[in-house]
Amino acid sequence: MFANVTLTLLGGFLQTLKLFVLTLAFALPLGLIISFGSMSKVQAIKVPVRFVIWVIRGTPLMLQLLVMYYGPGIILGLNVWGSGDGGRFVAALVAFVINYSCYFSEIYRGGIQSIPVGQYEAGEVLGMTRSQIFFKVILLQVIKRIVPPISNEVITLVKDTSLARVIAVYEIIWEGQSFIKSAGIIWPLFYTGVFYLLFSGLLTVLFGQIEKRLSYFR
């Protein structure tokens, strides 16, 4: 029984992991682009971007998942997600990427805006170009400052992936819960908790390492 449960949960965890990794892979860079949009001096860019961030951060991710999956079919009559498990996964991924990139963008914005203007000016009077100033002077300081809040979001994401079940993406809790019906046992649910704890523990250590690596300057 234990081996059977482990195997089933591993299958679900793989789905969880896939959603987690792909969400980060897209949302981390997309967030940077959104943050530039939200800091734009052009109102026609800044205002709509900030509006979207407000909507995404102001509504539940669960709601966004449902709208993302059912919306295109019901409103537009388009089957954009394709059929079956693959389609549901892609819909969930898109919803996660949009949601998390908005959160990341606000972290980036906070990080970038916290760098004293004197750092830019020092680069300017030394004749550096704008991109040299950003990449050689500003970026590493921003990264150092945003590691703690990013690590927070990333650990939240590990657990948020379980929400994908509302559109029947068979992640680990879904699999664990299935044993309640099929075998009348609850311990597989606790077992899923162990997976989460181990994984978030691993991430905590990883982010701790990054923080330590960047502790050589202030």
Binding site: P116, Q119, E121, A122, V125, Q141, K144, Y216, F217, R218
Partner: peptide, 13 residues
């Protein structure tokens, strides 16, 4: 021109 600032503005990293 060169400019030395009141608050130094060295690059910390």
């Amino acid at each position: 021109f060169g400019l030395v600032f009141q608050s130094f503005n060295l690059f910390p990293q």
